[in-house]
Design a protein around this nucleic acid. Structure first.
Length: 420
DNA sequence: TCTGGGGTCCTAGGACCC
DNA sequence: TCTGGGGTCCTAGGACCC
């Protein structure tokens, strides 16, 4: 008989804020928020900031004045720092179970096969991550991933660890959660459930399967089964991504094709770099532009074009060339552009790609050149070596006015310690 | 006048996640 | 003036084929 499996969901508390606090302990106990790229909207909030009513995803310009009045400390996002701390946390988690699925930058599922004293394991995980990296985490325990997620939600609001394995506890807690609290239930699904008279997570779990299947499709049905304790979402193996996208909004409207070409060349090189990092190749890219329709309106026009590459590749030059050709096909001089991006489609692991006699292999000399660039850029900081097409003016670059130093990835930005 | 049935593949769009 | 970015999966509908 297959042994019973249990899932732990480990989630870093207010992750980006916790990262900032690590290097600036004065932020402890104070309201802190972190903004998205371009300082556009709020993507992380400390407990204190949540209490003040700063909403997740709220546009920053709408809360700026309130933040000033309340003394909220504001940071631009610093992904170099968060990425680095994230991998340290994940390394620790891997020492507790061989079965770890890194679900996002700040959370991971761990699977345990046997019946184990998992509450003890969970508190050891919390202790070790706190001690070795300095980040506080919450942990949910459940017989399925969806229940572990729900347990984590409960853990967040108090005890830091919550076990949702026992049936009576499930009865009680699922009655307290609304469908929207459940992983996989978004706004639209929650509305549908409401019209069906389903108001709690427990109602959802106990509703007629045929009804759920008809109204919500296989996705909804799976979520329902998971709530019943029947595991349908296995731990995902780490696989190569299917697509890799890189895009940025401009800080202001841009109409100049030359500047957009530089931005796209930069995005194309980032995509290529990531492909090499993942040991992947792409056989087609898509280029897209977004333009403002009217100055006052939020609505955007979206233009995109896909282009096949001569052969599966991770070569920056080929991606830049294809991006440029794509741009020429969709660019209109009268449009007011606000964002652009490059997507690698059809991404596959390099070793899985069958090269026949006629497809061009990446030239070994070019391969060495690209590898060298990657090594230099990783060691000395990003963008030491770049392709000329990516430009030097960088008139399109985003606002990031309140970014903390890259303490862990840039020699120039190391923390300073005064010793007397 | 009246126009089958079954299958595959691809794409766009929606929904959801962090 | 100022509203992010990067993913996944599913579904419906069209094109195409026999």
């Amino acid at each position: 008989m297959q042994s019973k499996e249990t899932f732990l969901l480990v989630d870093c508390n207010n992750f980006y804020v916790s990262c900032e606090r690590l290097f600036n302990p004065k932020l402890e106990g104070r309201p802190v928020i972190v903004l998205s790229n371009n300082d556009g909207c709020v993507v992380a909030r400390s407990q204190e900031a949540k209490k003040l009513g700063v909403q997740m995803g709220e546009p920053f310009f709408q809360v700026r004045e309130r933040c000033k009045a309340w003394g909220v400390i504001v940071y631009s996002s610093n992904y170099a720092l968060y990425g680095n701390l994230s991998s340290r946390v994940m390394e620790i988690l891997k020492t507790f179970s061989p079965d770890v699925e890194i679900y996002s930058i700040d959370e991971a599922f761990l699977r345990f096969d046997a019946e184990m004293p998992l509450e003890a394991v969970a508190s050891e995980i919390r202790k070790r991550v706190r001690q070795w990296v300095g980040i506080p985490v919450s942990i949910g325990i459940g017989p399925t991933k969806t229940l572990a997620k729900a347990a984590n939600k409960i853990a967040k609001s108090g005890s830091s660890i919550f076990d949702l394995r026992s049936r009576p506890v499930q009865e009680e807690m699922l009655h307290k959660l609304v469908p929207r609290d459940i992983w996989g239930v978004g706004r639209s699904t929650a509305e549908t459930l409401q019209t069906l008279g389903i108001y709690t997570a427990r109602d959802f779990r106990d509703a007629a399967t045929t009804l759920i299947r008809r109204q919500l499709g296989v996705v909804g049905e799976r979520t329902q089964l998971e709530l019943q304790g029947i595991s349908c979402l296995p731990l995902e193996e780490a696989t190569s991504p299917q697509s890799i996208c890189r895009s940025r909004s401009f800080p202001h409207v841009i109409t100049d094709i030359g500047i957009i070409a530089e931005a796209l060349a930069t995005h194309a090189s980032c995509v290529a770099e990531r492909l090499r990092e993942e040991r992947c190749v792409t056989s087609a890219i898509s280029v897209f532009l977004e333009a403002m329709r009217k100055p006052s309106e939020r609505t955007r026009d979206y233009f995109s074009v896909a282009a096949a590459l001569p052969s599966p590749t991770y070569d920056t030059t080929q991606l830049i060339r294809a991006a440029k050709q794509g741009l020429e096909r969709i660019f209109r001089s009268e449009m007011r552009y606000k964002k652009c991006g490059v997507v690698a489609l059809d991404v596959a692991a390099e070793r899985d790609v069958e090269l026949d006699l006629f497809t061009e292999r990446v030239d070994p000399r070019r391969k060495r050149l690209l590898e060298t660039m990657d090594v230099v850029n990783q060691g000395a900081g990003k963008r030491i070596l770049t392709f000329a097409a990516t430009g030097v003016g960088r008139a399109w670059e985003m606002r990031s006015e309140k970014r903390s130093p890259r303490y862990m990835s840039s020699w120039r930005e190391l923390a300073m310690v005064m010793a007397k």
